[in-house]
Amino acid sequence: MMMSGGIDSPVSLYYLLRQGHDMLAVHMDNRPFTDDTPLEKITDHMSLLETRFGRKVPLYVLPHGPTQIALMRQTDRHVGCVLCRRFMWRAAERIAERERATFLATGEALGQVASQTLSNMRSATASVRLPIVRPLIGLDKAEIESVAKSIGTYVISTRPGVCCQAVPDKPATRSGLVQILKEEERVDVEAILDDCVRRAVVM
């Protein structure tokens, strides 16, 4: 389960835990493009949900800031959000494979932000092989917030914090995979991923 510290991902995790799945969580630590608050929120989300369901959910924290810096320096900012997510997916998949997980999951809901258009989702997830589960895909923001409030995660998610500063002024909402792959050729994908996963910390 990809955890961001926002409103959606803990709700998504809640649904999967409620269904009885054994889950592990991955957080892509976006500092210095955010601050410490996403990680603080996630540890509080996890603690709340672990208490509710009476079981431990391991949390992997992976450094994503160096990846963002490499992408900013070497690729077209217009498609930065899609490239960013491709690296997140790949890193999560590596952790999943290491832990023998059978699927990836997120709190994505269709069309909420630039990275969650169908076109961008397709470009982002073409980087991984494992199936992706999106329990919130058809819900609107009000519905997700309503669940978040009822399970107690909303108040944590909405604490003050710094938004991702790596988001370009005009992120692409439609991206072609050919264009994305061409941009991605400008960076050493394997070296970046190796470094990211090697520095993973389990909490």
Partner: peptide
């Protein structure tokens, strides 16, 4: 200071980000 090409991230007593358009974000309350 980290040069991320489209922004700088300076580590002072708190982190400060400087964008090409002159916007500055100071991570403190």
């Amino acid at each position: 200071v980290v040069d991320a090409r489209v922004m700088l991230i300076a580590r002072l007593e708190r982190e400060v980000t400087v964008g090409r358009d002159g916007r500055i974000l100071i991570k403190t309350n």
